[in-house]
Design a binder for these strands. Structure first.
Length: 203
DNA sequence: TCGCGGATGAACT
DNA sequence: GTTCATCCGCGAG
């Protein structure tokens, strides 16, 4: 499939690692594609975080509830929730069915549908379109309607690969949590201006 | 570049 | 009533 000059192949269920850290690393350099009536937008993933089974910082730590149910679906489903009453977060379920875990998509490098992202975000600044998980969701118009969809089959939200060879990601602690805060479970492209977080964290 | 506080809604004690 | 996997604007350094 051609999207603004990029040749993109949809990632199918069998393409995705069935383990949370492996998936968090695998997704660096891959694409998020969002099709909507207004147009298609796409970005390259430059930052992820892993939320493991038995992880005190994870939403699944308390067990399965109506909210976190998509995290217990087999890997490759979207878990979308509202944080702080203002920001939607996009996660990808990351283990076999029945095991609750996920990967948070924290930042994208905008590649296609950039004007649409500017309108949705209310800013012209390329660097601010999808730097941070709330911005990712706003730029791609992701909200509760996409909670639970299967990313390997959904027509409006999916993961893609354009053959880009990503460098080995750098690793740090996760952002914005207090429990299990020391664990090295954030993965990012060192040197990318599209990555969130402070300079110290990304150096 | 950084750190702070307010906005805002859902889930849980 | 408290706790958030955040963003934005502002002021200090």
């Amino acid at each position: 499939l051609k999207i603004e000059g990029f040749s993109v192949r949809r990632l199918r269920h069998r393409d995705l690692p069935e383990e949370t850290v492996a998936l968090a690393r695998f997704l660096i350099g891959k694409l998020v594609v969002r099709r909507a009536p207004e147009g298609t937008a796409m970005g390259r993933i430059v930052e992820t975080e892993a939320y493991l089974p038995y992880d005190a910082a994870a939403h699944t730590f308390i067990g399965e509830t109506p909210r976190n149910r998509p995290l217990f679906l087999r890997h490759g489903h979207a878990y979308v929730y509202l944080a702080y009453g203002t920001s939607w977060m996009l996660n990808v379920s990351s283990e076999k069915a029945g095991v609750g875990a996920g990967v948070l998509i924290r930042a994208l490098e905008p590649l296609a549908g950039i004007q649409l992202m500017r309108e949705r975000r209310g800013t012209e600044k390329l660097l601010d379109l999808a730097r941070g998980p709330g911005r990712v969701a706003q730029a791609l118009a992701i909200d509760r309607r996409l909670d639970g969809v299967d990313l390997s089959t959904d027509p409006n939200l999916w993961l893609g690969d354009d053959g880009f060879a990503a460098a080995e990601p750098s690793i740090s602690v996760r952002i914005g949590i207090t429990k299990d805060a020391h664990r090295p479970l954030r993965f990012f492209v060192r040197g990318s201006r599209f990555v969130s977080g402070t300079k110290a964290l990304n150096g």
